[in-house]
C-alpha cells in the first residue's frame, strides 16, 4: 500500500480523548459508519486498560477486518478463512502468558469456521474472541451469511432469505454458552453509544476470562454493514435496534464471574 493515511497528532492543550496506545497511527480503511472502527477501538482500549499490549497477539480473520493488523499495534497473524481459533490455539499453547485474541466476522466464524470455533470453545482455550455479526458477507459484496435474518435480501438471497430453503439466523453465543469450556459469552451491539459502552463491559469480561485463566471468552457484537445493506449508517443502526435484536437478543449468556455457585 503506497499512500497510507495516518492520523494527525492531537493538538489540543488538554487531552480529554485520545487514540488508544494499542492502535497504530494508521487511519481506518472501513466504510464510513461501519462498526468495525468502533469495535477496534474498544478492543484497543481494553488492551491498554489491562496493560497487555506487550504480550497481545491478534488473529485477523478473512473478511473486511482482514487487515486489522494495520490498526492494532501488537503482534498479529492473518489467518485462513474461519481458522483463527485453531491458529490462536497453536499460539496460546506456545505462549500461555500471552493475551491471544481473534477478531472474526460472521461468515468467518459461523459458517466456514464453525468447527474451529466450537472446538476451541469446547477445549476451553484461554483465548478471547471478538465476533462481529453484521448478518452478511461484507468483504465479498453482501452475500447471505448464516446470520442473515429471515426474509433479508442479500445478493445470494435476492428474494429474501427463505428459512425453508436456507435455514434461519444462527445464534452462536447461545450455542457456545452451552459448552463447559466457555467462561463468558455475551452479545452486545455497536448501534448506539449506550450499547457500545455495554459491549465494552462485556468485552472486558471476555478479556478477564483469559487473563484470569477462567476459560474461553466470546463477545458477539451486532454491527452494521450499511454499504451492503444499502442503508445510511443511521438507518443501518436503527435496523440493528429494531430488527436484528429480535433474532439476536442482547445480553449475557454465560458468565463465570457472576455465577458464584459454580467454581
Amino acid at each position: 500500500m503506497s499512500d497510507v493515511k495516518t492520523i494527525a497528532e492531537p493538538v489540543q492543550e488538554k487531552l480529554v480523548f485520545d487514540r488508544p496506545k494499542s492502535l497504530t497511527k494508521r487511519g481506518f480503511t472501513y466504510c464510513p459508519g461501519c462498526g468495525h472502527g468502533v469495535i477496534h477501538r474498544l478492543v484497543a482500549e481494553l488492551i491498554d486498560e489491562f496493560g497487555v499490549q506487550d504480550r497481545a497477539i491478534g488473529m485477523a480473520s478473512v473478511g473486511c477486518s482482514v487487515f486489522s493488523y494495520w490498526f492494532f499495534d501488537c503482534d498479529f497473524i492473518s489467518c485462513a478463512h474461519g481458522r483463527a481459533p485453531a491458529t490462536a490455539t497453536g499460539v496460546k499453547r506456545a505462549h500461555p502468558d500471552a493475551f491471544v485474541f481473534s477478531y472474526q466476522g460472521d461468515g468467518d466464524l459461523a459458517s466456514i469456521g464453525m468447527a474451529e470455533i466450537m472446538h476451541a470453545a469446547n477445549r476451553g482455550e484461554q483465548i478471547t474472541v471478538i465476533f462481529v455479526n453484521n448478518a452478511i458477507y461484507g468483504m465479498t459484496g453482501g452475500q447471505m451469511a448464516p446470520t442473515t435474518l429471515e426474509n433479508m435480501v442479500t445478493t445470494t438471497s435476492p428474494l429474501g432469505r427463505d428459512p425453508i430453503l436456507a435455514g434461519g439466523p444462527i445464534r452462536m453465543v447461545e450455542i457456545l454458552a452451552n459448552l463447559d469450556g466457555v467462561a463468558f459469552a455475551a452479545r452486545g451491539s455497536s448501534s448506539s453509544p449506550r450499547n457500545i459502552l455495554k459491549a465494552k463491559a462485556y468485552m472486558k469480561k471476555a478479556f478477564r476470562s483469559q487473563i484470569e485463566k477462567k476459560g474461553f471468552g466470546i463477545v458477539e457484537i451486532l454491527s452494521n454493514c450499511n454499504t451492503n445493506w444499502r442503508k445510511t449508517p443511521q438507518e443501518a443502526n436503527k435496523f440493528i435496534d429494531e430488527e436484528m435484536v429480535k433474532a439476536f437478543p442482547l445480553g449475557v449468556y454465560k458468565d463465570v464471574f457472576a455465577d458464584k455457585s459454580k467454581k
Binding site: I77, C79, R83, A86, R93, E116, H119
Partner: peptide, 11 residues
Amino acid sequence: IAAINMVFGAA
C-alpha cells in the same frame, strides 16, 4: 484443517 492451522499458530 484445524490441526494444520494450529501448526500455523505454533510455528
